[in-house]
Nucleic acid binder design. Structure first.
Lengths: 128, 128
DNA sequence: GAACTATATTCCGATGTGGGAATGTAGATA
DNA sequence: TATCTACATTCCCACATCGGAATATAGTTC
């Protein structure tokens, strides 16, 4: 992946917010919708943009699509550096912090950490 | 300056090359033209784009326009972090390294470090 | 002032992007 | 099988961007 393509992925605020959340771990689309409070088509298209360029991966789990950052070991040096930089910058940004706070609440209400939408989990799915 | 605006400035290869050179110090447009080997209008427009968004500053010196990065102290945390990240990434990139090598040759042939196009300098201008 | 140099701007076309409304689809559930 | 849920895709429009050709401008030199 070329460096400029990484920046092209980072040059939209919605995508920055998605990546900021993904830095905390895998998430399904309904989490993004709930945290960002944006229309489904907008979220889905930006996730598709990131996926087409290799900045995120997706796997299906029942009705849900779980998005993740590529595995640490498979990230290029440039991607590692820029994701780390994004995380640093987001730490001082009100909007990004608000998103993380909302995510934390969702995690409590809707999916235990590490068991996103697993059938074996307590609930019958995602009510977020 | 918002974080996303920084990334918008970084999402074009020509602009990345310009900034990579500026990380070494101030330069005039003819240096950029010579190093990048791109048309004058292309260089000038991308410099204008960066200037309009505060990523570079410009001052006139005779016929020449000298472009610089904003003073270290006036850079936001986000800009500092991303310029440092860019410099790291560029260090491992063939094109950016080639640009720097070309710049080094120009510096020898055409302008002593720190005396870019100064009238008090030896030559009568820039022959790059 | 005329000519020249270095750079910026304008005009134009091609292309990409972002957003929303509507529709399609894969899998689960009844 | 029919329906429902979660998500993706298509179609469309508005708009920004990129690039080059041509032109304009600021400052220098003769």
């Amino acid at each position: 992946m070329k460096l400029v393509q990484i920046y092209q992925c980072l040059c939209d605020e919605t995508r920055l917010r998605l990546l900021n959340l993904l830095l905390r771990g895998p998430l399904c689309v309904c989490h993004f919708q709930s945290v960002l409070d944006e229309p489904q088509v907008k979220i889905s298209k930006h996730l598709g943009y990131l996926k087409a360029r290799g900045l995120v991966t997706a796997k299906r789990s029942g009705n849900w699509m779980i998005y993740s950052l590529p595995a640490e070991r498979s990230r290029t040096v440039e991607l590692k550096a820029n994701l780390a930089c994004l995380q640093d910058c987001a730490a001082g940004n009100a909007l990004f912090k608000r998103d993380l706070a909302r995510l934390a609440k969702l995690d409590l209400a809707c999916a235990p950490v590490g068991a996103l939408h697993e059938k074996s989990a307590a609930g019958s799915g995602c009510d977020c």
